[in-house]
Structures are given as structure tokens and as C-alpha cells.
Design a protein around this nucleic acid. Structure first.
Lengths: 231, 231
DNA sequence: CACTCGATTTCGTCA
DNA sequence: TGACGAAGTCGAGTG
């Protein structure tokens, strides 16, 4: 990995055209050839970048560019598409390089898959006497997150989201239409379960007779394991 | 901006829990307090991070941590949520700091908005004799990208995407349902226009009587301006 | 290999 | 400010 602090301007031509005016920025040239252009603020997203597979070549500026103050041109071209990133270097403030080696990678816990597992284990949250039929119940148009039966034996199709929006309601509606045509399952009632539900999604769901269920992740996790939080 | 190459492990606790085993990584501490943890590969997304507003404090390791080789603890806490990122530093390989100043920011050109503008200008691509009514035609559930009339005077609602997937067909379907209830507009036919259309989306669209139109961005741009490409 | 879907998504826009 | 849709999205899982 090579780190360069440089006064530069940047042009990108590919799926869109973009330009960065002259300023001092951080250039990160990774071992796989990719390049990130970062400013001293904003989120984790670079101002501009080239994703691997790609390669960087350094060129001499032409007379016009040299007259404009450009001392070097970095050209990063994507190996498969025609995407190109050109960094016009005016001044290198700092440069350093290091061998980092392969990274073991991130271990995650607590995403939608975990919510689904917890709700399957605590299926009574859907109502007293509810029993789990199975997770990822397969239909012709895709898997329903959870299929259950309520105390009266009627089917429940549960769609789980971390953030519940209109799209999730649309998705559950498609499943319900399909499943209610299956005499072995019908009637199937819908439950839209999420950590957050937008007002629009709630309105749409209830208008379609779909029950909304807010999930408290911390409480569910607390019931699941006795492990104290790390910090 | 402070750049540190360090052998470290990282723990995140917030909307989820995540852990990075011990390895050598790049730590970027930006001026707004945010921290990025990058490896020497992957995409532009860091392995882990904390978004602003947040603040970093350095702590001494306790005896257990010191025995495990930890020389310093960086604790980054989010200012509003309870999110926390803890970097356990084992060894600092390199450290440098620079003043970058405010960045003028990125200038973009050429996304979906451009496709919409081009298609509005080249409305005959929808069929000989088609006329533009207006772009961003407002309905109760949102704006339709383009409203037009074909040679026979019938209304056309056009949904434009760069990549046409099932979601776009669903969206257009909702618009069509609504607009066909308006006697001033009905009957309204649908056109799903995109640079790429997935087979599933095409099948769904055609099943619903929606016409699919592949857009050739380069050809449309070529007709639009005589400006040669930058590189 | 292609397609789908989630994401600590982030980012813009608009009501 | 909140909600919604797009992204040069990226990446994982599945048929």
C-alpha cells in the first residue's frame, strides 16, 4: 500500500463523468492496483476511486499541462470496462509505502439473518400459542423469511427487515397473493416485522390487512444469551 | 488528517457487533473525528469505520490487555448514537499527519438524470409521432419520469432506469394503476426504458403489457452533443 | 456465471 | 427534519 498526500485534480470518465478541482488530498494506492482519493472529511466513501481489477501508470504531462503546474499524471484504467481515472499531480507533499499482507476479514453479528434466527427462537412474540413451521420457506417467487401457525392453526407469513419500508410490504404482498392460492396453506395472514417501520410502510401494510410488529433487537438478544456486551 | 499504519485488532458495537482479528492495517483519522480502518485490498469500503460526528480518545490498556500485547486503546464514540469503535493497538509501524483543508467537492455528470434529459429530447425513440407532455409528471404517489402521447394521442408513462430490475417494473405498475383511474389520462400505456434490463424484469413487464425499451446511452449522447470524450 | 438482495449502506432531493 | 430513491453502489448467497 502506497500513501501519497498530494495537491492534485482528478478526472473520472466511465459510467459517469466527474471532476475534482485542485486541492490537497490523500491518495491510497492499494496492492491490488485500486486507487482511493480521500478528503479530510465526509464519510468513508472516497471522493473518487477506481475499483479492482485495474492498473496505474504514470505519465509525463504535455506542455500545456506542465505550464498549468502539473508535474505528473497518474492514469488508472479498469481491466475490463473502459473506466479511467486520471490524477493530475501538482505537488507531492508526502509519500510512504508499507506491506500490510492479507487481512483476515470482518466477523459480523447482528444483521437481518440474526433477527430472523432470534424471532424463530422466540416465535411467541408473534402471539401466544404460535408455532414455527420453518425459516426460509421456499415459494415459486422466493423464500418467505418465516412461516408459522397461530394458536388457531392458521398460517402466518412473516417478512423480516431491519428497516421496514414500502418495498418490504410489496414483497410480502407478493408472497401472500401466491401462498393464498395454495389450498394447503390458505388462509395465510401476513406479519411485517422490523426494528423500524416507516409510517408510509405501516399505513400500506395495515391497509392490506398485514400486521406490523416492531422488533426490539437488544431485548431479543438479551433473552437469547447471557453474554454481557463487550463495552 | 492523521495516517497510522499499525498492527491492531478492532471491535465495533452499535447497530451490530463486529470484530477484526489482529493484523497490520491503515488507520485514517480525519479532521472531523471520523476513523477509517483500511486493508490493502477490497473495494473503497473500509473494513470498519466510525462516521462523524464522533470523537476519539486514547486510553491505557489494563493489565490483561497489556499482557496480550496491547500498547494503546483508541476509543471512538459516536456523538449521538451509542455506537462505539475500539482499536486495540499492538504496534505502530508508521505515523504522519497533514493539514488538507476543505475540499471543493465532486462535480458529477451523466447519471439517470442525463438519460431522462436525453430521452425527453429524443422522444421519437418511443415511436414515430410521439410527443413529450412533460418530465417528472407529478402523481399522488410520486413523479413519473416522462409522460408522453403517442401518434394516436394515447398517454405513455415512461419509467427510466440505468439498470432495469423488478423493482422498477413494480414502481411503474403502481403509477399505471393510479393514472389509469384518471379519466383525463386513461388509457395510459407503460414503457420501461433502461440501459440494461434483467430477464426477470422483462418477463414481468411484458406479462403486464408494459413495453421494454433498451437505451443506448453512447448513441443518444452522440446525437446530443458533438463534444469529444475527454480521454 | 448471472441474478437477487441486504447494507453500520451513503448520498441527494423533496415535501 | 424525515422519508424515499439512486448509487461508478459493494458483496454475499443461491440457482
Amino acid at each position: 500500500m502506497r500513501l501519497v498526500i498530494a495537491k492534485c485534480s482528478v478526472d473520472y470518465a466511465g459510467r459517469l463523468s466527474a471532476h475534482l478541482p485542485l486541492a490537497t488530498r490523500l491518495l491510497i494506492h492499494k496492492n491490488d492496483g485500486s486507487l482511493l482519493v480521500h478528503s479530510d472529511g465526509g464519510s468513508y466513501k472516497p471522493l473518487n476511486w477506481m475499483s479492482p481489477p485495474c492498473s496505474l501508470t504514470v505519465h509525463e504531462p504535455d506542455d500545456d499541462q506542465r505550464a498549468a503546474g502539473v508535474t505528473a499524471l497518474w492514469r488508472v484504467t479498469h481491466a475490463k470496462t473502459a473506466d479511467m481515472l486520471v490524477v493530475s499531480i501538482h505537488e507531492v507533499v508526502h509519500e510512504t509505502a508499507h506491506e500490510l499482507g492479507l487481512d483476515p476479514g470482518l466477523q459480523k453479528d447482528g444483521v437481518e439473518a440474526h433477527l430472523q434466527k432470534l424471532l424463530a427462537e422466540q416465535i411467541a412474540l408473534l402471539g401466544e400459542g404460535t408455532t414455527l413451521v420453518r425459516r426460509e420457506y421456499m415459494t415459486a417467487i422466493g423464500p418467505v423469511d418465516i412461516l408459522a401457525r397461530d394458536a388457531s392453526g392458521a398460517s402466518l407469513a412473516v417478512e423480516i427487515k431491519r428497516r421496514g419500508g414500502i418495498d418490504g410490504v410489496e414483497q410480502l404482498t407478493r408472497y401472500l397473493e401466491l401462498m393464498n392460492r395454495d389450498p394447503l396453506l390458505a388462509p395465510v395472514a401476513g406479519v411485517f416485522a422490523a426494528q423500524e417501520i416507516t409510517p408510509q410502510a405501516r399505513t400500506l401494510a395495515e391497509d392490506r390487512g398485514i400486521r406490523c410488529l416492531l422488533l426490539d433487537y437488544d431485548a431479543m438478544r438479551g433473552l437469547d444469551d447471557g453474554v454481557p456486551r463487550l463495552f
